[in-house]
Design a protein around this nucleic acid. Sequence first.
DNA 1: TAGAATCGGTAACAAGAGTTACGCAAATTC
DNA 2: GAATTTGCGTAACTCTTGTTACCGATTCTA
Lengths: 226, 226
Amino acid sequence: MNTYAKSLENCILFKHLNEANISSLLKVLQVKAVSYEKESIIALEGDRCTSLGIIAAGKIELQNIYPSGKVATLTTLMPGQCFGEAVLFSDQDHYPISAVAKTKSTILFIEKESIMHGLTHHPILLNNFLRLLSNKLTMMNRKIKVLSLDTIRQKVCNYLLKEYQTQKSVMIQTHMSRKAMAEHMSIQRPSLSRELIKMKEEGLIDFDKGTIKILSLEALEDELIG
Amino acid sequence: MNTYAKSLENCILFKHLNEANISSLLKVLQVKAVSYEKESIIALEGDRCTSLGIIAAGKIELQNIYPSGKVATLTTLMPGQCFGEAVLFSDQDHYPISAVAKTKSTILFIEKESIMHGLTHHPILLNNFLRLLSNKLTMMNRKIKVLSLDTIRQKVCNYLLKEYQTQKSVMIQTHMSRKAMAEHMSIQRPSLSRELIKMKEEGLIDFDKGTIKILSLEALEDELIG
DNA sequence: TAGAATCGGTAACAAGAGTTACGCAAATTC
DNA sequence: GAATTTGCGTAACTCTTGTTACCGATTCTA
């Protein structure tokens, strides 16, 4: 089992632990290593989830597999990343999506009971696990916030106000190209140009090569709230 | 402190624990009770978050307060619910939003260190805390999934396929009125009618008073994936 | 330095969906 | 049982935004 210790040093779960610590921890946690051939299914949507999975080697994809066989890939996981951590302890302990090996892979499985044991006996592990969940939560929170904005005007206002917060000035330096800026807000470049011009005409902002000046913070907030 | 034990029995964190257990736990956790007058601020966006908050009495609102003073309320928390649980252990340990008392309220605060201590010494508490975080994650996952659908066609397909899963039949009983159905998908009623008729014309579905029949599961999935 | 590629503004067009309004049918009420 | 209300389909209109295309300016490259 010690063979995996090295590759797990960059896994969030084992942060602040050295190779020796990880090795002994892996023994205590009764880790089971399972190998998968390319294209084989690791977990199927609906399966009961009783263990945490950590990618030790290979590349796996999380995907939605529809009854007809259609597949929609959501994310790709690389060594060090893990899956099942959210389902494991929730009331709905069934995988909401499927996991498929895209290359020959090795997954380390840790049973829920072992995890519980590890969390109660190793404060660092507990801390890491909580950080893992918490970070995911804050990430998703941000994502929901952005997804809830439905007009281009709102997205632009949101972007500008966020930049104002970090740059602490109404003269906002746009370090990106217009193209990158549009992609960042997941809108079309011409749509962004059009909206910026409209906002300039309406006296909300002014802009020049490389900078956008907020003329009225309050007005931007009004647009954002509706 | 025992005064609060009773009111915390329906808090997820203290599930499976009786009043006596909760009382002793509250002592161990060094809970600090703080009272707030109506409209007073409990936590301000940007403040460092070092403790978990549990509503013991009153009603508090989580809101975005903009520099100009504009306020957008996100949710209302009632006794038994808690806040800060996601921020507490994340890398970004600052409140992303503000908490305001809407009535005279009492909040129980538990310091991060005490929580850590409690989690390592009380398996039930650990289990409950993990379930709290996990449930929130799965909830947000679902929300993101729905928010990512951007055409009405996709929303309708998503709704029908989900109903198919629960009703296990292509003859779907619509227990709601069209109006309620439209609200449920957060679209406009005429838009829903229009789309349903289009889908009928295209041979994807058929519908009658009270039922919608899926003619091709595969076709609906295609529409959903794009 | 000439030619090519990239970027950004702009305009014209099309598609999707919200809005409003109208009318019919069913349900409810008196 | 007549009258009012409610739900729903439907059509016309409008707004927003993605799409495509074009052109000038800037940058990169050979």
